[in-house]
Write a protein that binds this DNA or RNA. Structure first.
Lengths: 255, 255
DNA sequence: CGTCTTCTTGATAGTATTCAATCCTCGTGG
DNA sequence: CCACGAGGATTGAATACTATCAAGAAGACG
């Protein structure tokens, strides 16, 4: 099932000597370098970073492409260079829970032995990098810094998952959606962008499955927020946060 | 607020030479050794394990004791030697989500910089060990195996958290409780014990806050399972799994 | 043995879901 | 350029599941 993904080697050996990272501006992997600080290679020397780069493969994927499925043997670690992705788990009757949305700089596919715990799918067109765990392991033996980074990423993901458990288990629909919008807004602000306008690359169905709601409830709640003057909805994939304080209030105490 | 916890050094230096692990059978830290394989020190040499042991502190805590609170500066890594603990997050109005229950061999307090993401509290009387992160870091520089173990623990916790997100977001009350009972049953079976009888050291309130339900719904659902002949309830803290197949069926498709 | 807490059970209410229909947006083609 | 079609989004009405409020039963503990 499923066609092989178009992953291509990034830093190819042209001679016996190790080639440096591609310098061609048109090469897609320039994008990977732009986000390297955000993810795996934080505290590496230029030299070690190059070694890591050498075993990186890259792919450009259009929207709604499955990168791997829950249960697939976990043989690669992935990184999002551009675009938005989603990770989800399914119940046998089709009910779906989206575990998280991914944005440039985010890692996915972290797994220890066995298979992936979730399915990974593109939401928009994406540029994605990946490393083979097999090759990766040989390198990380010598580079404890990479494993430390992976630990710190796993812990960060764990903290985020626990926060989401609080949301799913104990928050109302209004609180859930408000929390979601604020998370997107803060993410933009943390990157120096305007947090007052938030893009929603994902569908209402995706938002619903992320927040443990139905499409209809998500839609209705958007409408309520709009009527209350808390947000503006210039288009269905763009939210203007009109009253941040009110949104923050709703996010934690609308019970 | 909060009295200091009674943590005492385990392997104390009696002379200039590093003392071995306490051999006194009465010493509470014998218990820690019994569970070492389950947690942090999996692939260590006896020598390295001893070094780790040397900086371990131990405490015996009665039920309902808070070990640390969400937001406290994360300066220690903890391990449960005996008893049951719970980790939870609170909303400002008191709504609570239990992130997980912990049993002997489980680690908690994993955090990277900043504070703990949750509050940790004993459910029953517990024996708990802890390591100072400061001292710990000095040791792990030389012991990449420990960091690898921590990564694998963090990933395992992450996978469990994602499974719980599916439960909280998409399962019905019956499915939630069935999944919970099966998880406890499988845990016992994995340790070579009888999975047909499950102990519930935690209160209905704790179960409710773990499953994103109310006390009443948990109680009613127990009663339903009993009436359906799926379980027996010899006492309120003991469950006999009378029909495992039925329980597994309910856990995944009772929608 | 009495009190206190926890658990169970019952009645009612409310939030979110389900089912259904309409609206909108956007891409396509005439 | 505009009509058309399709998928997604919104809105409405009715239902259902779980929460809330309230009371009684069962244990736990002194």
């Amino acid at each position: 099932m499923g066609l092989p993904l178009p992953f291509t080697e990034a830093g190819r050996r042209s001679t016996g000597r190790v080639a440096g990272p591609a310098r061609d501006a048109a090469h897609p992997c320039r994008r990977c370098e732009a986000v390297r600080d955000a993810a795996l290679c934080g505290a590496l020397t230029a030299d070690d970073f190059q070694r890591l780069t050498a075993l990186r493969c890259h792919a450009e994927l259009r929207a709604d492409i499955t990168v791997f499925r829950e249960g697939d043997i976990a043989d690669h670690l992935y990184s999002v260079s551009s675009g938005t992705m989603k990770l989800y788990k399914l119940l046998s009757d089709g009910r779906r829970q989206i575990i998280g949305f991914l944005f440039p700089g985010d890692l996915f596919g972290l797994a220890i032995g066995g298979g992936y715990a979730y399915t990974a799918e593109t939401v928009t067109a994406c540029q994605v990098c990946r490393f083979s765990y097999r090759k990766f392991a040989m390198l990380t033996e010598r580079l404890p810094g990479v494993e430390r980074n992976m630990l710190s990423i796993a812990v960060k993901d764990l903290v985020a998952a626990q926060e989401q458990m609080l949301l799913l288990g104990r928050k109302t629909a209004r609180e859930k959606l408000a929390s979601f919008l604020l998370k997107l807004s803060r993410r933009k602000r943390d990157r120096g962008l305007d947090g007052g306008v938030v893009e929603l690359p994902m569908s209402r169905a995706d938002i619903a499955d992320y927040l443990g709601l139905t499409i209809e409830t998500v839609s209705r709640t958007f409408t309520h927020f709009k009527r209350d003057g808390i947000i503006g909805l210039p288009s269905h994939d763009q939210v203007v946060i009109a009253d941040n304080a009110a949104l923050e209030h709703v996010a934690e105490s609308d019970h």
